[in-house]
Amino acid sequence: MSGLWNDFNSAQSNTNVIPKGTLAKVHMTLRPGGFDDASQGWTGGYAKRGTTGSVYLDAEFTVLDGPYAKRKIWSLIGLYSPNGPNWANMGRGLIRGILNSARGISDKDNSPEAQAKRRINGFANLDGLEFVARIDIGKDTNGEEKNEIRAAVTPDHRDYATLMGAIAPQYTAPSAPGHTHSQAPSGQQNTQPSATPGTAGRPSWA
């Protein structure tokens, strides 16, 4: 018997949040925001500009495997904040980690080949990447817990190969701007949620 039906203190929590620190392979989709600034390399209509003047990528991550398969997580990747460089630096660090994870590069590898794999022609080269994410927990605008992606797991981690499918990613040189060679995960469609998360979970400095 799983528990008495007049006492629910021992029932499992009904929280919809994936536990903090969970590692999972995810598929990243960038939801276009229509804001470009060629001087910054923001082209293709992927960046979004918020009401505060901050600029970011609106990313959707779909969990591909494991007990949370098909679950979706939404996070903002900072590109610019009028309050200082912190948000943009965090965004650049996250993208570096995503490229390392998706393209099978050790974070310690600074060889010319590794440096070339950390370069992109535009944000279109990020759209559709699959990598191993470390799932975190933040707060939405109502103060409720929500999952976020703040870090990627690289080949330096002992569980990386297993989570990626034990096959080293095959890197293909970035295609020309405006095109992407990425594909949606098998059996998945890049459907949009009925409501756009907007700026939920944006750091105070953004």
Rank of each mutant, 00 (worst) to 15 (best):
G3R: 00
F8N: 12
S10N: 13
Q12D: 07
Q12W: 06
Q12E: 04
N14W: 00
N14S: 07
T15K: 07
T15L: 01
N16Y: 03
V17W: 01
P19R: 10
K20P: 02
T22I: 06
L23G: 02
V26Q: 06
M28D: 03
L30H: 04
G33W: 02
F35V: 08
D36G: 05
A38C: 00
Q40F: 03
G41A: 03
T43E: 13
R49W: 00
T51G: 05
A59K: 04
E60N: 08
E60T: 05
V63T: 00
L64F: 06
D65N: 15
G66M: 10
P67E: 14
R71Q: 14
I77E: 03
I77A: 04
L79M: 12
P82N: 14
N83E: 13
N83M: 04
N83C: 06
N86C: 07
A88Y: 09
M90S: 11
R92C: 01
R92L: 10
R92Q: 13
R96E: 12
L99D: 03
N100P: 02
R103M: 12
I105V: 15
D107Q: 15
S111K: 10
A114H: 09
A116T: 10
A116F: 11
G122L: 14
A124W: 00
A124G: 07
G128R: 02
E130K: 13
A133S: 08
A133C: 13
I135H: 07
I135K: 01
I135F: 14
D140N: 14
N142D: 13
K146R: 14
A151S: 14
A152P: 00
T154I: 05
T154Q: 03
T154N: 06
T154Y: 04
P155I: 09
D156P: 04
H157A: 08
R158T: 05
R158K: 10
A161S: 14
L163D: 05
G165M: 11
A166H: 11
I167Q: 14
I167K: 15
A168Q: 15
A168W: 11
P169T: 05
Q170P: 00
T172W: 05
T172Y: 09
T172Q: 12
A173T: 10
P174K: 03
S175Y: 04
A176V: 15
P177K: 10
G178R: 05
S182K: 11
S182F: 07
S186D: 12
G187K: 05
N190K: 07
S194L: 09
A200H: 09
R202F: 02
W205S: 12
A206R: 07
A206C: 09
